[in-house]
Design a protein around this nucleic acid. Structure first.
Lengths: 281, 281
DNA sequence: TCGCGCCGGCGCG
DNA sequence: TCGCGCCGGCGCG
């Protein structure tokens, strides 16, 4: 069937979803309505895919949900910045094998991070490992320095999805200490085990930031923010995400600091815009 | 079919696996051979179950694998202690809603942990949350104080599974500072995201321990160990699990300390015995 | 080929 | 009822 261009079959005839094409084709190139529930929408898209090919595994849909959710948030962030209603921009990041987030900093700070990693490994065989955050928040200043065209995204096309997911490349080696405002951990859904990946990531990013600050005698820094966004969040999630960044509780000198600064439920493009205007201003 | 006592159907006719019974019945009450690969074994058990009822979902099997793996490690630990070849005992822990690990400590230390949690929450609305570790390692001394019968487990029965998974109850309020030697994070398999739950847990348990030590002026403490065990471990897993406990890198005074002290691949009862004799001695 | 980071569907108390 | 903590099956570079 020609319509099924977003489901392919590999050499073993296992169906494989092309995540970008699937989203664009099923939505006919249109962004979801502003108030459409993404929980509902993704279930409908799942049903469409399963109706096309019942052999599609749940794991494939799980995988797609993660990207779809990031794409829609990435578009909301871009459009908000283009409209002039956001001071800063949230950028989708690829995985850590594809991109080292430290290289967003200019050479000076990037080298300090390299140096920190090396020294820690060399002295004690201990590492500073977390997954790449889903989004990085960069300052509007650096965005205007590095990007020249600011057109809103009004259509869901694979070109547009490719644009927002590779935008980060424009910012390599271009951020000063204050140009990386923070990160966002994004999950389509939470579980009591998986949600702890967020405080881990927040803790590590903040510990590295504190180290940068110390090494450079930066007095009274702005601080690094780490936010979490999911389609649905309950009270236990909120409580767990208030977990302390452990580097801040061993001495009495510092106030204990949360690993995740704020947690937001975002289940539609409208709420994405609302939440991002709070985070990005 | 009468044989299917370990697959039940709820009111909506959805099949449900009784995890304990399933393991015992499928293995006919026998422990796996010492050199049987658990990866292979679990796949065979999955196939048996799916052959009985094709509607069993992968999620149900995932859930069962976690328990089966813990049961077998719990039995190996018990038998090792009973045989006299282990100084300490690793106990299966339930989830955090069912049991607060802090209550394993005697009243004095338990109250300090309560106090720490309260003060942190009251002062800064920040929490100290992680999932319960899968296993706690308690000293042989306290085991001999609290348990009177030491029979090896030679059969897989639901009674025996119930025994090893509720043994922890014997140790409530009975551990001094040095009687909780450490914890073990156990996962049947790892993924690059899920494996980070282990350093998070290790980091938090160690930060709490350091706090106990500080509050009690304990000089030169033994330290708290956090181990990780999985059926299969690759180089990236090992590297990620060497991630630093972040509380140990903010000051120059302490040596950076790993959140996870050692990582072991355990894919058979024999290797379980080998690894546990290293951890528990 | 494999490492990354994705997430839903559990059994149980 | 729901919170806990379980984990495999992805699409992609």
């Amino acid at each position: 069937m020609a319509l099924l261009s977003y489901i392919r079959r590999n050499r073993k005839l296992v169906p494989q979803i092309n995540k970008d094409e699937a989203l664009c084709e099923m939505l006919n190139g249109n962004l979801p309505e502003g108030d459409t529930s993404l929980i509902t929408l993704f279930k409908e898209l799942d049903n469409t895919i399963k109706a096309e090919d019942a052999n599609v595994k749940d794991g494939a849909l799980n995988n797609a949900h993660g990207d779809w959710y990031e794409y829609l948030l990435g578009i909301a962030s871009w459009n908000l910045f283009v409209s002039g209603d956001a001071a800063n921009l949230a950028l989708i990041l690829p995985n850590i094998r594809q991109f080292d987030v430290a290289t967003l900093y200019n050479e000076e700070f990037c080298n300090i991070i390299y140096d920190l990693r090396e020294k820690i490994v060399a002295s004690t065989d201990v590492e500073l490992i977390t997954s790449n955050p889903d989004f990085v928040i960069v300052s509007g200043d650096v965005v205007r320095q590095r990007v020249s065209e600011f057109e809103p995204i009004t259509e869901l096309t694979t070109e547009n999805l490719n644009f927002i997911s590779s935008l980060y490349q424009s910012f390599v080696n271009s951020c000063g200490f204050d140009d990386i405002i923070g990160y966002i951990g994004v999950k389509a859904s939470l579980r009591p085990d998986r949600r702890l990946q967020l405080p881990h990531e927040g803790s590590l990013m903040k510990a590295i930031y504190v180290h940068l600050q110390t090494r450079n005698w930066i007095i009274d820094p702005k601080g690094l923010k780490y936010y979490a966004i999911s389609r649905s969040i309950n009270d236990s999630d909120r409580k767990a995400l208030r977990t302390v960044a452990t580097h801040s509780i061993t001495t009495v000198h510092n106030e204990p600091q949360a690993a995740v600064d704020e947690v937001y439920a975002v289940d539609s493009l409208n709420s994405a815009t609302d939440v991002l205007s709070r985070i990005l201003n």
